[in-house]
Amino acid sequence: MTPFSYLRARSLDDALAIDPSRGDRLLGGGTNLIDLMRKGVEQPSRLIDVSGLSEGIEPSDSGGIVIAAAARNSAVAAHPLVRTRYPMLSRAILAGASAQIRNMATVGGNLMQRTRCLYFADAAGSRCNKRDPGSGCDAIGGFTRYHAILGTSPSCIATHPSDMAVALSALDARIHLAGTGGGRTVPAADFHLLPGDHPDRETLLAPGEVIVAVELPPTPAALKSTYRKVRDRASYAFALVSVGAALMVEEGRIEDVRIALGGVAPKPWRAFGAETALRGRPATADAFAAAADAALEGAAPQPGNAFKIELARRTLISVLSGLAEDLR
């Protein structure tokens, strides 16, 4: 690791002292950043440890929940309000990593984690446009099992690895940001960026901005929601494909539906098209199949991950059918 200085933030103001141009980075649980520093992918000159800032998980005035950025993943997953009102989020977090890592990882850090692309991680031996803009992408034509089939660009095919963020995207969560110039709130579905020509730009966080909290709006559909993760090991592995879905059916017709996919795109992939295809329709197998087609429309796989189209289709149909069955 390159030498760095360490500052423990005592307040939001300490965190807002961050100056990325001087090599400052915020440190949450460290579960991704410390690993990348050891690999030489990240070389901050100063770490501002924000893991000791607010960990609160509180009901919001509007009837939703506000989760502070330093709340630990395990605390969010186990919180009674999350478990009962947003089971998809609980399950998504529980599907991720291991109990130890969930105890360490913060909500803010989870959103900010980097891709697990093997070529991105290989600072010594592989080209990567995300790590070294303009250098090229060795993942294309290489091992792409964990790579994206949607939203890619010729410069980058990496996936965002978070499970939690997939659920946040599906649940229309809002991310509260603070900066020296004031605060703003952005939809979770917009927070992560597609790679385009600049895969090094991963979020819409402006330099100096920090994540303060995540707010879940009241979402009746989320009461009946779940998250299914498909992976190479039964546990403790990143998603090949994951599906977060919520379904509300009234008198046989779909009143509200939320769908987001993980493991298939450079960002948590909210399937707006599939949702549109379902709203107001009867909750039937045919409708779910059509929605799955809509969700995968435009998929452009690599030879090593073409199977993900079929895998995502089937998983999505199965998850929606399961939710519909439970509602019956």
Partner: peptide
């Protein structure tokens, strides 16, 4: 390309 125990999958519990 997968010189890590996260990317080489030995069986987990």
């Amino acid at each position: 390309m997968n010189p890590t125990l996260a990317d080489y999958h030995i069986p987990a519990h």
